[in-house]
Simulated assay, not measured.
Amino acid sequence: MDACINQLNQQMQQHQLPAIVDSFVRLSDTQQTLQLLHLYESAQRMSVKYAYLQNIATRILTQYSLPTAMINQLNNIDQLSFFTPGLKFNHGFTQQNQQQKNVLHSLFSESDNTKLPFNYVRSLMLFESNENLLQALAQINNVGLTPVASYIASNPSQHSLPKHEFSALLALMEVELKQNKGSINTAAFLKALLTLSHSITGLLSEDKILLCGAYLRCKTAQVERYLVQNK
């Protein structure tokens, strides 16, 4: 076990919360990520300590920025839920890594149909009034994609979305368009979509095409024609 995890475990056993927070800044980016993931994984194993462990993570992220290595690790809704109280501080949602990805980019591009994140993220915006979260939806990564665009054009999932998740995704599209004043990087989106199309067997699903049309605000026939012409 990494020394930084042993240190964290000892500090928790002795209820040294101030020491945990104070020593965090002296760790490397990788070690900080290991500690935060250890808190999350421990909370998953020990539900009775969930609130206590989440509070530690929140206290850390209240004082310090999210380590950049952590951004790629936040790829499921359970993780996002655990870290959400802490991400509200220090511009946690809009912090970007070397690929200019924020946590929503990672979450959306890697999510599967077992635990989709869109309704949860929409609820956060509706009830938490988090300006930083709104800004994160409009951010682009190093290939010009927003988090919503990353899900549609990069996520290989071809399954139909449940109605409530589909509605939530459409609502997030509208939020993004409002933040970006209707501007879409169409070229970047189509390039990513073409790459996705080439990586799978057969054609993209009707649901995927429908989402593409909704995002680009065009007819699905135009999307299908583009893919056929460039297959």
Rank of each mutant, 00 (worst) to 15 (best):
D2Y: 14
D2G: 05
I5F: 03
Q7T: 08
L8T: 03
Q10L: 15
Q11A: 12
Q13N: 09
Q16G: 08
P18N: 08
A19F: 15
V21E: 05
S23E: 12
F24P: 05
S28M: 08
Q31R: 05
T33Y: 10
L34T: 03
L34P: 01
Q35C: 15
L36A: 01
H38A: 08
L39Q: 05
Y40N: 01
E41H: 13
M46T: 00
Y50N: 09
Y50P: 00
Y50W: 14
A51Y: 08
A51S: 14
Y52R: 06
L53P: 00
I60L: 11
L61F: 03
L61Q: 00
L61W: 02
L61P: 06
Y64W: 12
S65E: 15
T68W: 13
T68Y: 11
A69Q: 13
I71T: 03
L74V: 15
I77D: 04
D78F: 15
S81N: 11
S81P: 00
F82N: 01
G86N: 02
L87Q: 01
K88Q: 13
H91V: 01
H91R: 12
G92E: 04
F93S: 08
F93I: 07
Q99N: 11
Q99A: 12
K101I: 03
V103M: 07
V103S: 09
S106Y: 03
S106F: 06
L107V: 01
S109N: 10
E110A: 10
S111K: 02
D112T: 14
N113L: 13
K115I: 10
R122T: 03
R122D: 05
L124D: 10
F127P: 00
F127E: 04
N132V: 02
L133S: 06
A136S: 08
A136L: 10
L137R: 06
L137W: 02
N142D: 15
P147E: 00
V148P: 08
V148E: 03
Y151E: 07
Y151F: 15
Y151C: 06
A153S: 12
S154L: 15
N155E: 07
P156D: 00
H159L: 14
S160N: 13
E165K: 10
S167A: 14
A168S: 15
A168N: 01
L169V: 09
L170C: 14
L170Y: 12
A171Q: 14
A171I: 07
L172W: 07
L172Q: 03
Q179Y: 06
N180D: 12
I184N: 11
F189H: 02
L190F: 09
A192K: 06
A192I: 01
L193G: 10
L194N: 04
L196N: 04
H198V: 02
S199T: 06
S199A: 14
I200N: 05
T201Y: 06
S205Q: 03
G213R: 02
C218W: 00
C218V: 14
T220H: 02
T220S: 11
A221W: 09
E224F: 03
Y226K: 04
